[in-house]
Amino acid sequence: MSATSAPRHIEAFAHAAGSVAAGVPGGATGWHGTLLNIHIAPAASYEMEELTEAHCVAGRGIEGDRYFLGTGTYSPKPDTREVTLIEQEVLDALARNDPPLQGGPIQLAPIDHRRNLTVRGVPLNHLVGRRFRVGEVILRGGRLNFPCKYLEELLGQPVYLPLYNRSGLNCGIERGGIIRPGDPITLLD
């Protein structure tokens, strides 16, 4: 494993996407979501490891994760990537081949998609430029995630097109703390 170096992140609301979206009204409200799974990986291409609790550090990431350590595939390119989220509903849709643009059902388990948090009931595409709470932690939606060919290669599964436009959300951490599966997720503003 390469030596740990300090990570460089773009603050979520300073990101080109987040900074524009933060001033635009609209988006889903009134939803109540849940944190299902937490995963981290120590370095680029290492298998993800599931956690029963995780320590989120403001401005940096989840302790032990490659984007906290600066050892991720994209760590050399500063971006908003302190915490990444994806919807369980997207994984469910892939599993039922919906929409049928892919070869067939794709089983993408929470340990495989390489985002940190798998959530249910959270409209992630509406949260760019928004603040929301995961347990005691406050996250800022910085930009939509988009699928990468690297993930497709790593998994040996054709997930690039099927994940398009529903690949999750890259966030910054405004207020750190401990999160656990089962934590409620709610909109702040």
């Binding site: 370095a43 291409s45 290492y46 298998e47 690297y150 290669e153 790593l154 998994l155 040996g156």
Partner: peptide
């Protein structure tokens, strides 16, 4: 041909 996931065995 590609990168492969690394496991701690």
């Amino acid at each position: 041909m590609s990168t492969r996931i690394v496991m701690k065995l």
